[in-house]
Design a protein around this nucleic acid. Structure first.
Length: 273
DNA sequence: ATGACCGGTCGTACCGGA
């Protein structure tokens, strides 16, 4: 048996993943097997699609993982899964969480000295839909939250499904997405504003574009033709970006049986001790 | 041919996803 790492211990190497699992109950065995196979220390999950009471905590505990989950109904839902401890958990935005900011789209916690944020940005649906305006406001609210938490100054990673392709290099066929959400200029400005708080979009530093996607439509042929988007991001503070040895996207998980439509994005951090 | 999917719900149609 591998000895349990105490909460206070800071391992020199840390593997952190972010993954939109598209329902944890539909994929619990697959997710846990993937965590073990890839020796993941911390996983930031999105779209668990369940209330706290319905989260399969026992299965994760059996695999050696603690879970901090934030889910209020069968939509959205975010979690932090860790085998190196979970401290100072904050669910949702600070202060009063009135509609529409009461949706379960953000959770933060400290794991092995790294402040981890699991975020699930609203989809936006269509450019003319009220949900699109909500998406822009939500991004701005997140920015204020990150500033207040001084996320850029410590060892922080803000990762998850941002539902925005930051540039045309992040879209398999940009012309197809001109008048759609995920590629509009206001959304991209919202992402840039997050980065401008002092964070780094670490995937692009390790994998220059174009290409390198994290999501592919479930429709037949889309994944095989690599018709994807890069909408899952890991925004790292300066000190964490400097300690990022490798960044990889596990396309094998997307190619498996009954997959999520998102692939996991993984960061290998070194020199934390 | 983005027509061709997937997960959820007191459902067997529709919402939401991206």
């Amino acid at each position: 048996m591998v000895p349990q790492v105490a909460s206070s211990a800071v391992p020199d190497l840390l593997r952190v993943a972010t993954w939109n699992v598209n329902s944890i109950r539909a994929r619990v065995d697959q997710v846990i097997a993937w965590l073990g196979r890839n020796e993941v220390d911390v996983a930031l999950l999105q779209e668990t699609k369940c209330r706290d009471a319905d989260f399969p905590f026992a299965a994760f505990a059996e695999a050696g993982y603690e879970v901090a989950h934030h889910g209020v109904d069968h939509w959205n839902g975010v979690a932090i899964v860790s085998r190196v401890g979970i401290d100072d958990t904050v669910r949702g935005f600070r202060g009063r969480q009135e509609a529409p900011f009461d949706e379960a789209r953000v959770i933060a916690a400290t794991c092995a000295g790294v402040r981890c944020w699991s975020v699930y940005v609203p989809n936006g649906r269509e450019l003319w839909d009220p949900h699109y305006a909500f998406k822009l406001v939500w991004l701005e609210r997140l920015r204020h939250e990150l500033l207040h938490a001084e996320a850029a100054s410590g060892r922080s990673v803000v990762a998850g499904d941002f539902n925005v392709a930051p540039t045309d290099d992040d879209i398999y066929m940009p012309s197809r997405w001109r008048r759609r959400t995920h590629a509009s200029e206001p959304e991209r400005a919202g992402i840039r504003a997050l980065v401008d708080t002092g964070l780094r979009d670490i995937t692009r530093e390790h994998h220059p574009g174009p290409g390198v996607y994290t999501w592919w439509n479930y429709r037949p042929g889309q994944f095989e033709k690599d018709h994807g988007l890069r909408i899952d991001l890991a925004l790292c503070s300066e000190s964490l970006a400097e300690r990022t040895d490798a960044v990889w996207i596990d396309r094998e998980a997307r190619a498996s049986v009954r997959p999520s439509d998102h692939a996991p994005l993984v960061l290998d951090l070194a020199g934390l001790g």
